[in-house]
Amino acid sequence: MRVNAITWLFQRITAAVLLVLLGVHLWLLYMNNTSEVISFAEAKARLMSAPYITLYVLLLLFGLFHALNGLYTVMVDMGIKPRKTAIGALLAVGLGLFGIGLISIFQFIM
């Protein structure tokens, strides 16, 4: 399979980007929260701006790719045989969650 080199490279690129994005995500949750329980209004106030929307869309996209490609790597390591089925299932989960995630992120700006 000739896509191995590309997915391997993307796994590294998303890893490097996630180090930053996930760092920001966690920093926001721990350092920028005043109340005990996060409310919709509070989250909306933070998420209204374009940079934050970009941050979370990228986090969703890169996080899902890194996670599901990582899972696929584990499967191949264990010698999974019908690989097409695995790829199909992971793609379906990834695309589904990306769709749901996108819609829910845009709830904040609607």
Partner: peptide, 22 residues
């Protein structure tokens, strides 16, 4: 890694489904 993937799936599903409902 596997633990975080499981959490991510749960996290995205929970946040997504509740946000879509308002």
């Amino acid at each position: 890694g596997i633990g975080i993937v499981l959490y991510l799936l749960l996290h995205a599903t929970l946040m997504g489904t509740s946000l879509i409902r308002g």
